[in-house]
Lab assay of single mutants.
Amino acid sequence: HNLTITQGKLFFHYNPKLCLSEIHKMEEVSGTKGRQERNDIALKTNGDQASCENELLKFSYIRTSFDKILLRWEPYWPPDFRDLLGFMLFYKEAPYQNVTEFDGQDACGSNSWTVVDIDPPLRSNDPKSQNHPGWLMRGLKPWTQYAIFVKTLVTFSDERRTYGAKSDIIYVQTDATNPSVPLDPISVSNSSSQIILKWKPPSDPNGNITHYLVFWERQAEDSELFELDYCLKGLKLPSRTWSPPFESEDSQKHNQSEYEDSAGECCSCPKTDSQILKELEESSFRKTFEDYLHNVVFVPRKTSSGTGAEDPRPSRKRRSLGDVGNVTVAVPTVAAFPNTSSTSVPTSPEEHRPFEKVVNKESLVISGLRHFTGYRIELQACNQDTPEERCSVAAYVSARTMPEAKADDIVGPVTHEIFENNVVHLMWQEPKEPNGLIVLYEVSYRRYGDEELHLCVSRKHFALERGCRLRGLSPGNYSVRIRATSLAGNGSWTEPTYFYVTDYLDVPSNIA
């Protein structure tokens, strides 16, 4: 807008934040220059609390790290170098490059900038070799853009010569660093050979998330399962459950009422301010606690030095998902009996873990797994792929695949051998790939016309006998059925096997 004052003059007093240069501009645009008398524009009460600059400061050096910015700028000295009290560095987070010096300023003089007072450097006698002032900004957020400017702080001049310097606002972004852990990993099994893994992005990506790394490792069953005799009275049979499938998407929606109208769909109840505040506090606490764990609990591995020492970490090797089922080394339970199943799973520490690289999504279907087997899954978020990966501390989750139908069934015939004193040795093959492992066998036998009897055969007993022995049988026709019990439950009964026990007292003698 054009402003013209045809008559009258300007009068400025007691404006401590208004620089004289701005008042002189007002004289020019209003056409009143030359009308004012000496005392109409006070030299001592206008701009006496402001830094009124008329020179431009330029930054000469900028260096960044993930949490620091090192700045240096060209030296500046007023005509009387004693008038320079120091520099004021202003900075704040700036997602967009549209910041002005006066953003967030209120009537009390406060604003949204963080201000650092910096002492002037030592003055050199040689004007050509003056030290460049600077400042190291610490405690910054990774991968965050900051708006920065600097200006001088000078003393009051009796001659009211307006001098000083100020830089333009520059924008500097800190470097990326390792992201925080992925949030809320959930693993479920939808079949006997697959596990579905879902997660949420890290709360602090500290860069642009480029991919996720998912490692999985087959877990050995508890050692007590191999040692305890679950045929003993009072000892509860062990059981394991597989990871249940995901709930429906509708039930997972946030901010939804727990109660549904019987007449149909209901609208979600909005969260109160107290609920939102509580969630923010919980989120802040979780982030602080995660940072504490990362800094205190997890110790970084030592990389190899120039002395030739090897990095103890196993090298990563990509495998196809079809090879995942046989990740671990199978060892027989008892070496003397080769027909026992290889369900003991000690994992070799030198073995390469299978892994998958996930790009542009937060889910993965891990296939080719062994049925009813526990897996430990390790999830890392990465925001750099080359020249070397920059990934987060791992988040861990466990899951067990679903049982395989008929995996616990005894394959092959049940054979028998009759000894003296009416002892019958029953023999059968253990299931080759049971659900988890076989903890015991149930032997059901009966003599024709009598009630059915049951015998429990422990895992250890089966390994020693290759089956079991029935003792003290009365003469007669017998039928026997056997079924295995694994961590997933009972298998199917075998087809009945028949044998006849004679009275050993009636056996004919070869003595003449």
Rank of each mutant, 00 (worst) to 15 (best):
R481C: 04
S458P: 06
V414S: 01
G436V: 13
R353K: 04
Y396R: 08
Y230N: 11
T343R: 07
S367E: 06
V501T: 05
R370V: 10
G306D: 14
E260F: 08
C391H: 03
V393E: 15
C269T: 13
E221K: 06
L228A: 13
Y504V: 11
K287C: 12
H454Y: 15
F215N: 12
S479A: 09
T328F: 09
R376H: 14
E362S: 08
A381E: 02
K302C: 09
L293G: 00
Q429G: 15
L369P: 01
G476T: 00
S223M: 12
Q275G: 10
E356D: 08
F246T: 11
T288F: 03
L237Y: 03
E258V: 07
E281L: 09
D261N: 12
R240I: 13
N510W: 07
D250M: 11
L487E: 03
V327L: 11
S320W: 07
N490R: 14
E404P: 02
N339H: 09
S243Q: 09
S398Q: 14
N360F: 06
S342D: 08
S203Q: 03
T497M: 11
S283K: 00
K278W: 09
V423R: 11
K361G: 08
Y498P: 06
V397G: 09
A407W: 11
P349S: 11
S284D: 13
E282H: 02
G472H: 08
R390N: 10
D222L: 09
F419S: 06
D409F: 10
S305R: 13
S305G: 07
H454G: 15
G308D: 06
D506L: 08
S243N: 11
V457W: 06
R376S: 06
G489I: 10
R286E: 14
E260P: 13
V334Q: 08
L232V: 13
A335D: 13
H461D: 12
K233L: 14
H371D: 01
Y448W: 03
S251F: 10
A484T: 13
N208L: 07
N326P: 13
G449K: 08
E389I: 06
V358A: 10
A263D: 09
V443T: 02
K233E: 14
A336Q: 02
S474G: 06
E279F: 03
E465S: 12
S223T: 08
F285K: 08
G449F: 13
G436E: 03
E281V: 11
L321W: 10
K460N: 15
A463Y: 06
E224I: 05
E281A: 11
C231H: 03
L505H: 07
Y441L: 00
S251H: 15
S243H: 13
G449T: 11
S320G: 12
E420L: 06
V214R: 00
S262D: 14
L235D: 06
K361M: 10
Q252N: 03
S492M: 11
S320E: 07
A399K: 12
V443E: 00
N435I: 00
G308V: 15
P403R: 07
F419L: 09
E265M: 08
V359K: 12
E351Y: 13
P338C: 08
H352R: 08
A484L: 02
G207E: 02
C468D: 01
R483S: 03
P332L: 11
L440R: 06
S363A: 13
S262G: 07
S284E: 12
A336C: 14
E290H: 15
R301L: 11
N422M: 06
V324D: 05
S342F: 12
G308S: 08
C382L: 00
H211Y: 15
G368M: 07
A405P: 06
H254P: 09
S268M: 09
R483W: 00
Y498G: 07
I209T: 13
E362H: 11
L440G: 05
M427V: 07
R471Y: 15
S398R: 12
S492V: 06
T347V: 04
C391Q: 03
T485D: 11
L369F: 03
K432C: 08
Y500S: 09
P354C: 14
K302A: 04
G436A: 13
V424I: 04
E495A: 09
L237H: 03
S315F: 11
V457Q: 06
V397R: 11
V424L: 12
S492F: 11
